[in-house]
Design a protein around this nucleic acid. Sequence first.
DNA 1: TGAATTTGTCAACACGCGTTGGCATTTTCT
DNA 2: AGAAAATGCCAACGCGTGTTGACAAATTCA
Lengths: 191, 191
Amino acid sequence: MTDSPTKKTKSDRTREAILEAARLLFAQKGYDGTTVRDIAAAAAIDPAMVIRYFGGKDALFARAADLDLRLPDLTALPRNAVGEALVRHFLTVWEGDGGTTALPIALRSAASNDLAAARLREIFATQVAPAIARLAGPDAPAVAGLVATQILGLAFTRYVLKLPPVVALPRERLVAEVGRSIQAYIDGARP
Amino acid sequence: MTDSPTKKTKSDRTREAILEAARLLFAQKGYDGTTVRDIAAAAAIDPAMVIRYFGGKDALFARAADLDLRLPDLTALPRNAVGEALVRHFLTVWEGDGGTTALPIALRSAASNDLAAARLREIFATQVAPAIARLAGPDAPAVAGLVATQILGLAFTRYVLKLPPVVALPRERLVAEVGRSIQAYIDGARP
DNA sequence: TGAATTTGTCAACACGCGTTGGCATTTTCT
DNA sequence: AGAAAATGCCAACGCGTGTTGACAAATTCA
């Protein structure tokens, strides 16, 4: 009776509370640094529920790190604006919802956790590489790799390592300078 | 009597065995993924010795992640060759001694361990930033930050994440392309 | 209302961790 | 050789972890 089509059942709401808390904590402390008890406390329920709803910590992490980067269609942009557009897009996504997007989550855990590293390689292979492939010629994988080098480096130094001068850099300067580097990688592969 | 000046006492040799094993394992599995028992096994001694010789896991990590990048004097190079020289230098250092140099060690652990992150920021502040400062003008910190973005991104994707297309990139292409990006960051700050 | 199902709590488990102190062994020195 | 010091192993501790099963409270349905 109280269930409108948009209303969710009780269990769905706590399931979402767990997932949200897990995303936040995994993004902040990494996989190893986050305990099931921490997640349960943040979601205001018992640790046992985390296991019952998701089957285990590993499975929960897999769900938490499974998101869409929502990359724009790069072919719809002027060819020489792709670099800046990419940087702008990622900065927006990362700073948008408190850093609980999949990429920082996986990025923080990838260094010490194989599951997270695999997840990150998968995100790269299924989302970043194809988007680049439509711009660059036969050399697309190498170009995508070089782009990843710069994009992940920016994410790592700014959001994970929090290197002071990188944190201090204003958004528009990052867009201009890092964008130029990425543009060069893409242009370098065009005949 | 058996102690020539270059000979070390017994304890010094096992102390070095522990440190070497620790460097290797920390570089491979990160701080959290490496146990004192693992290190002891790799050094073929008892876990208790690790604590007795170094005081604890934290202190051992601090010693293991404390190395010199041996950055060359950048002012001695032609101004337009600095980018390539930097990339070449880092690739050599990283691939030289099996990746047991300080930067990959700290890099792998920095994501989930505060001690490692602090160590990495310190390496940046005391070694990378000053080297750049002599080239770039008053804007040096920002330039050093941008350079770190690209260098750490390369290290992360190639040696930690092992992203296939980045691993596959031949050394000289990395030197040329990534070097050009870094050169652009440095040149951007010169009047 | 009363039975059945869902949702949640509690206590405890087995395990691996860093770390410690006691005791055996080896090396060193006189 | 014999005493003294260094070097090493062993067993155990306290702790936090992921996970489990039994039981209570709330919700749902007839």
